[in-house]
Amino acid sequence: MTDRLTRNWLLLIALILATTGLATQDGGIAAAGLLALAWAKSRAILGGFLHLDRAPEWLSAFLVPLGLWLALVWGLAAVR
């Protein structure tokens, strides 16, 4: 039995491991995956550690702009 904070930490560790595995891959899809994992880690920190899970509208107010910015970073990285 683990508490909510420990489960959030375990989720973050799993996302880090996924990032480490995906980092060995090249290409636009891998880059999109790495940025999606960064977004998921941000969501875990904002929601689980900074308690925005209790304020879903505020969580979205952070996550939507972050997602758009990460998409911009992906677009800039995709230009050869």
């Binding site: 990032t19 980092a23 090249d26 880059a31 790495l34 940025l35 994992l37 960064a38 880690k41 941000s42 920190i45 904002l46 550690f49 900074l50 972050l66 990460l70 970073v73 992906w74 990285a77």
Partner: peptide
């Protein structure tokens, strides 16, 4: 103090891929 620390954590996970991983 914890909120400041989570902010440091949050920024790190956001800057990590563009700096180290996106070739």
């Amino acid at each position: 103090g914890a909120m400041f620390w989570h902010m440091v954590d949050l920024i790190w996970v956001l800057i990590l891929p563009p700096i180290y991983l996106l070739m």
